[in-house]
Design a binder for these strands. Sequence first.
RNA 1: UACCCGGUGGUGUAAUCGGUAACACAAGAGGUUUUGGUCCUCUCAUUCCAGGUUCGAGUCCUGGCCGGGUAACCA
Length: 567
Amino acid sequence: MSQDTSNAPEKAYHHFIHDEVEADLAAGKNAGRVHTRFPPEPNGYLHIGHVKAICVNFGLAQKYGGKCNLRFDDTNPAKEEQEYVDSIQHDVRWLGFGWDRLTYASDFFEELYGYAEHLVRTGHAYVCDLSAEQVAEYRGRLDRPGRESPYRNRSAEENLDLLRRMRAGEFEDGARTLRAKIDMASPNPNLRDPVLYRILRAHHHRTGDRWCIYPMYDYAHGQCDALEGITHSVCTLEFEIHRPLYNWLLDHLPVPHRPRQIEFARLNVTYTVLSKRKLLELVRAGIVDGWDDPRMPTISGLRRRGYTPEALRAFSDGVGVARFNSTVDKVLLENAIRDDLNRRARRAMAVLDPILVTLENFPADKLEWLEAVNNPEDPAAGTRRMPLTRQVWIERDDFREDAPKKYFRLAPGKEVRLRYAYCITCKEVKKDAQGKVIELVCTYDPQTGHGTTPDGRKVKGILHWVSAEHAIEAPVRLYDHLFAAQFPDDVPEGVDWKSNLNPKSLVKVAGPKLEPCLREALPGTHYQFERLGYFFTDPHESKSGAPVFNRTVTLRDSWANIEKREE
RNA sequence: UACCCGGUGGUGUAAUCGGUAACACAAGAGGUUUUGGUCCUCUCAUUCCAGGUUCGAGUCCUGGCCGGGUAACCA
């Protein structure tokens, strides 16, 4: 099992599945083996919810010196595609995990079919001629028992003949099914003679047109687990009610091994949706720019946004594993990436909404190079030099004509420091015809280099800036969460969940002014734009010498909190 | 309305055989700081309710209340 260890070791954590596994180990089960599997259906891209499932399954294998398979649950050819198979493998690897075996449920179609004949021969399954609607009707309701199918008591010989003819393609799609013979009165609907095989003429991404009958998830999953030697089949809570069927099948089949299903609560995160159906809808409707749009909660979207495998894994470990459905605050995800990038991202200056500052006592022909630290958290990152000239850009938000009480940035008559450079005092405000501030005339104090002041006066405000003469421009995209509502799914009857989309989830910055060193930013590089946030050069759209910056996440902004509170 | 599962601070998780509520994030207060970032310190719950067993209950029992899941020839 491979794992990226480029970062600090992740904190050890413990959850109830560890207890279960350890109890099995202590009881001497499975000859001390631990073997899990991550079983995605290749019908969409993996998202942050899968990150948790991946970390749990591969994590279990790592912790107990076991193995973990990647298994594609491809029993429904109508929905599954090779594109998804490829993206899933790529995402799992990128997250830092390597599987023991790569399998497909379809690898076992022949064995699965053999087991079906076994069930027929032993009188535990029958071919049913009821239509889908009739099956549903015969199944009864949640609070009412079902009725037995009139085909339930066919002889084993007849069933075997019909099953073989189903496989041979003698019947129309949907004409018959193979059903387990269990209990139509069971309070658990999964046990009311569940369908095991359906007739479906669809081209399968791996088996092509070899089969016209396909096993249902419930029938395939446990048997695949058994055939792969899986010891702990970890899945989400909604499969809990399927466990009796999972066990019933294993009880009635000559499987080589006995796996065990354990369920945990799937992950939910605020300000996003995590259902594949909805994500697909966003992609198909063109609301986002594909599965890897940086606003998508998909692994590929997060990657393009600038999230790192380490941050995603740390987030996953941090949310814990339990049997209680909960929704995690998205700030946990944001903090995970801030924490990681704080340590590794190089700093640079970028002014996104510029105002021109003219330093009236700075000679027009003077150019001064100032040393700036690349990463205060990592001395090995070294330093760089920034050019200072008579005119510089500063952030519009760093100037107020009428400064609020606790505002210690620039205002008329006030003094601030230009980071790594000198202290400046605002002398004059120039506006255009509409009253918009277009230029600030300031003086600089040449005695205030290197963070000092000659008289020891405190200058609290520190601004990022870029030389107007040297600034470069490049596309900068500010991403925010895709939905404006904390729980986008939570809409009243008849209201479209898409009405909760955040209209400002993507803002393209008009004329950013960037520090010249950023021109050389390579695709796929993390930066911190000081005082603003972490940015990532888009791996697809950046070209050498022409970077495109995606905002991964803003920096924590305690000033914004103060200002909000003061209102 | 049936069956199954669950309920610990604002959020998410902890708490060996029942032994006297921990951690992270958020929020608030303060300190350090040439990023209002980072970092450091402090503050913030009698564990859904009611009974019961016990020297002792978040952990066990009973009854309520609340939440989630389940009626695809989807996974």
